[in-house]
Simulated assay, not measured.
Amino acid sequence: MSSSATQKTFAPPVMEARRWLDGVDFPPERPLINVSQAAPVDLPPEPLRRAMADIALNEPQAHLYGPVLGLPELRREIAESWSAAYGASIAPSQVAITSGCNQAFAASISAIAEEGDNVLLPAPWYFNHKMWLDMAGVTAIALPTNAKLLPDVDAAREKITERTRAISLVTPNNPAGVEYPADLVLAFFELAQEHGIKLIVDETYRDFHSQTGAPHALFQQDNWQGTLIHLYSFSKAYRLTGHRVGAIVTSANVLGEVEKFLDTVNICPNQMAQFSALWGMQNLGDWLRGERLEILNRRAAIEANMPMLAEKGWTLKGCGAYFAYLEHPFEIPSDQLAKTLVKDASILALPGTMFMPDDDPSAARHLRIAFANIDANGIAKLFTRLAALRFSLAPSQRGK
């Protein structure tokens, strides 16, 4: 029996994976390829760094407490930008700034649920969402996904109980990379609206969606704010990972509850981060469009190199944003395979077991590849190494 909130959940997966590197020497001809984390390691673009230096020197408010729900100018910029992007009408009072998107999720759950409630999560799920629900005493109800890793609305309907407070979707998806179709997202919105629960939509990777234009029509729905809780991160868009800045867009009433959480946890979002995100929104549109094209090129490189793995029995289950989700052909389960890859192939990737319920056998068959920090050449090298692996095949793959 656990004696604390944190003991109800597992250790941080990325930190666990990093420990697999301890004591391992990588030969010069086979350096480590790290595809374990989706956070870009490149610095923010130089114009933004120069702007940040100017903010640090000349903006007194950057060093002081600010409003709990965030910098008014940034909230207004998001409201205007989102209204234009989604063809909707969003007010600054419906926007809050958080210290990263993880905090946006935690604050949202704290605003709508209590211990003993439950939230539906499509599996594979983003592990930090599961961790927060565990610590909050809110049960994560696994929502199975199909062969294309898309959740089913009818299956979700059957799992809703009187203690269900929300359905949570991540699109483009982490860990699978899958972009949820607009009609599917809308169907989940209508299901949530029908049952008087919230639909949480985490669009951390929205800026790298393969389609142009709005990825869904949720903000155009009548009384969208009564159902939708929209989450966003600036970490990926402007490489502000270490500065921790994200956003929530929902009703002012829910944000009133969110404010209590934020005031208690960190009083206000990081002021430097907010001024930096605001500058990025106002000045880096062209640069961000170029970043999107680069990520789409990497996605294309994954698909172009996939035939060499398909010949060996691998299957690409999902690909998009920063991620590829692969089914491997080996007898060894993915948690052991991932550790073995460090020593045998100089690859650090995360196993499907980090994204699935303990009792789901499919977890042992999958690996997540995060390609935020490897270009097309690096992807080709990664796939060449994976194709060269010689492990015993799983029974269903023998003879391929």
Rank of each mutant, 00 (worst) to 15 (best):
M1I: 13
S2G: 11
S3M: 14
K8T: 09
P27W: 06
E29S: 12
V35R: 02
Q37P: 10
D42M: 13
D42S: 15
P44D: 06
M52C: 07
P67N: 12
V68H: 03
P72N: 09
E73H: 10
I78D: 03
W82A: 10
A85Q: 12
G87A: 07
S89N: 15
S89Q: 15
L120P: 01
P122W: 00
A123V: 15
P124I: 08
A140F: 00
A142C: 07
N146F: 02
P151M: 02
V153C: 02
D154Y: 09
V170F: 00
A176P: 10
D183M: 11
V185N: 06
K198H: 13
V201Q: 00
D202R: 01
E203K: 03
H209M: 14
H209I: 13
L231V: 01
S235M: 10
S235N: 12
A237H: 00
Y238E: 01
Y238H: 06
R239N: 13
L240F: 00
H243W: 14
V245Y: 03
I248D: 01
A252T: 11
G256W: 08
V258G: 02
E259Q: 12
K260N: 11
M272Y: 08
M272H: 12
Q274I: 05
M281Q: 09
G285S: 14
W287P: 03
A300M: 05
N305Q: 14
M308T: 14
A310C: 05
W314C: 05
L316A: 06
K317M: 14
A321E: 01
E327S: 12
H328A: 04
V342C: 02
A345G: 09
G352Q: 00
P361K: 07
A364P: 04
I369T: 03
G378V: 07
Q397I: 10
R398P: 04
G399A: 10
